[in-house]
Structures are given as C-alpha cells and as structure tokens.
Design a protein around this nucleic acid. Sequence first.
DNA 1: CATGTTGTTATGTATGCACATAATCGAGTC
DNA 2: GACTCGATTATGTGCATACATAACAACATG
Lengths: 233, 233
Amino acid sequence: MTAPNTWQGVQEEVRRRIRSREWKPGELIPTETDLACELGCARTTVNRALRELASAGLIERRRKSGTRVARHPTGRAVIEIPLIRREVEATGARYGYALLSRATTPPPARVAYALGLPETARMLHLTAIHLADGAPYLLEDRWINLAAVPGAETHDFTAQSANEWLLETVPVARGELAIAARPCGKAEARALDVAEGTPLLTLERSTWGPEAPVTFVRLWHMPGHRIVSPIAG
Amino acid sequence: MTAPNTWQGVQEEVRRRIRSREWKPGELIPTETDLACELGCARTTVNRALRELASAGLIERRRKSGTRVARHPTGRAVIEIPLIRREVEATGARYGYALLSRATTPPPARVAYALGLPETARMLHLTAIHLADGAPYLLEDRWINLAAVPGAETHDFTAQSANEWLLETVPVARGELAIAARPCGKAEARALDVAEGTPLLTLERSTWGPEAPVTFVRLWHMPGHRIVSPIAG
DNA sequence: CATGTTGTTATGTATGCACATAATCGAGTC
DNA sequence: GACTCGATTATGTGCATACATAACAACATG
C-alpha cells in the first residue's frame, strides 16, 4: 500500500480495513499518531479523515480511550428539503401555484402543541396547492405565527408561496420534521382530486426563529409519492 | 465583538451575520484571508468554519469566485436508521421478534428492479414481525441475494432478526432509502392486526455490498407511526 | 474573430508544531 | 479499602507556511 497522502486516501484506507474486518466492530484501532506514521502522512491528515468517519457514524472516538469501530454502524439518510418550486422544476415539469384559502384564526390544538404556543395565539392560516404541469402535486396547509412574522398579515400570498416568502423574509434557527402516512380527508380529497381515505404521505415541518416559533406546515403528497435518498455508511 | 479564536466562534459569527442580513442571500462574503485578518485568527480556522457551513448548505463556495450566502438555504433532515431492537428498547418497551415465513424463490419484479438483479436470481424471502411489549410494532418483508450472502441459506433466522445478522455479517457499501404511504394489504392486515386498507408508513431499503446487491427490505409501520427528526440549518 | 496561453486569485489541502482538554491509571494518603 | 490528586495519553484544536487546483481574466496569436 503506497502512501495516500490525502485525507480522502486515508479515509478510504480506513474504510477498507473496516469493511474487510481487518478491524472488527467494537475493536480499538491504532492511534492517530501511529496511523500517520504507518501511512506516511501528518497526524492532522489522519485526524481529518477519522473526524469525518466519526461524524458519519462509522467509528466512535473518545479522548484518551482512543478510536474504535462502531458496533452497530447506524446508517443515516439525509433528506434534502428543497423549495417546492425547485422540486417540481427538477422533474422537468412546469410549476404552478394557487392560494386556496386564507384566514386569521387561533390554531387548533395540534398546531399550538407542535409549536409550543397557546391556543389563543393569533395565527394566519393558509392553504395552497402546488401544481406540476397543471396537475395537483402537493397540498400545503400552513400556520404562521403573526407575533413572530407581523409582515405576513398584510402580505399577498396569491402570487408567491408562503414557502418562498418565509425563506426570504425570516431567518430560521431550527426546525423539526415529521413524516407520517395519513388517510386523505374530505378537504384534501377535493383539492388533490383523490378518493377520500387514500393513503397519503404527509410531511410536517415546525420551524423556529431565533426567539419565537415561526410556522407550522403540513404537506400532503399525491398518492404513490416516495421520498428517496441515499444512505450514508 | 472580541476575537472568537475558535472555529466554532468564527462559525457562530458568520451565522449571525447571515441571520441579521448583514450578508444578504446571494451576496459574496469576504475572502478567508480577509475574514481571518478581521477576526484575528488563522485562515485555517476560518476555512474549517466555512467548510462546515458549506456542507450544511448555508453558504456556497467555488474556487476563485469566492464564497456567497446561499440563496435558498436548503434545509436537510438527517434520519437515523437504528437497529429495530434498539428503536423499540429506546421507547422503554420489551422487544420481541418472530419469523413468520421463509422461502427460497425468485424475486418479484419490483425487488429485482430495485436491486438491479435479474428476475431469475436466487433469493431468500423472509417475513418477520417485531414486537414492542408483545404488541405488533413493525412488519418486515425481506429479500436476500443468496449469490452475495451464501451463508443466509443455512442460517437460522428464528432467533435473531435478519436485520441484525446481516449487519454483523455483511459489510455494507451503500444503500438507498425510500419512504412512502401505502394501503395495508391482506397479509399485512393479518400480521399487524390492522384493518385492510389502513394507511401505513413504509420504508424500503436497498443495500449493496462492495460488489453485489445484498438485500431489499420493506418495513411496514403501525398506523400513526411518525418519523421525527431535527432539521439542520 | 476565435482561440489558446498565461497570470491572478480564492479555495483546498498537507505539514510540523504547540497547547488544550478529557479520560484513564496508578500512586499516595486518610 | 475508599478516595484524592496528579501523571499520562489520545484526541481536539489553533497557527504559520507551503503548495495544489480550479476558475476567471486579460492578453497574445493564428
């Protein structure tokens, strides 16, 4: 084995030794210093290679104790959350958007709970549909916390989706995603032109700004929709 | 603002400037050298901070052109894929497992297609149920490529789930995850004790070894199951 | 005008060194 | 024996420097 001399090379070599069971799960691997010496590169280089492997979950590191091969390499899938418009356009289809309803009302319990807001909070409730080549693609059911985004009250959402407007307007600090399968209700059936009760994939996103909750949105996908992503390992 | 002097500090400062719109979306930010000078640290430190921000999607970097704030900060959710046993035990419940069926048959078209195998391939078909405190938790419908994992043919899967055995036995190179909502079929209804047609969340995983496809598995979750994960941003 | 050639520049990476930090081990003390 | 406290050690990080590489720009040449 010639010296790789790049952190990618080192990483590949370590991956190989793990795959080939040369280093078994749970086993301690050589120290950074030893590896650097063996592979003929600097410790910094080994460090970077191992650091990324650790964040990928392939190895576990603890100061002083050393580095060991993860016992149960817990795979992780990274799901990208693009703009819906981009998602549609990426399939080659023409994107369309229409606002279906708009109202300022207190949130239902499930929304208030998800955002940690009182049920008396003033919120803007929007429903909108996203189209691909004129056909329904996605139904959006959104609640915006007016205390956190006062501008939303006067903004016109008929041309641009709340999705895009919020991204441009409000800095997002953190969020949470929940994926579930739900039966299509009456309202969704009408909007998506689907039989009531059809299993639909729904995504729920809660997002928080630096201080206050910003928005909660439930997205209803069309029947058969799949979220696909590679698994890192 | 005192000099942070750590890459986390630099990162936080950059995040702050982006959040506060001091650097606007699409805008070019100072070069690493300039930032290092301004913040009173080495370029290496700035580089690390920016590198991680780029991989988080908050900024976009190109050689020579420089670094700019991402126009549409594409959030990403990281879904952990733990051992099912661990997932159950993490809820505090007692884990149980039972093999339901076992057969060596050629794969149906959808499985062959997902793995890129001919429909004449020899595969081991297993169905099994995972229990939490004795109640159905998850139905597993698995296909194993016997050409890639010959040992599976003689292995006894009544005690240990294929999930765990494969993880310990076969090195995994890459995989793909697909999430969908499906109506519960007749067989699933019987195994999970759920009404036929109920919307169920299904996960499909295809995994490949260094050379050949290893296994395809479809997991049927109980009604109402949610996959929850934080969104990085 | 089209096209290649050469600089310039910002990011990407490797290296040697120093010190920080956390965890572990073992000696010494009560 | 239990406990405290330091020595040891592996990882974590910062810095200065050097060179690599990609991309853009400006110039030169047919």
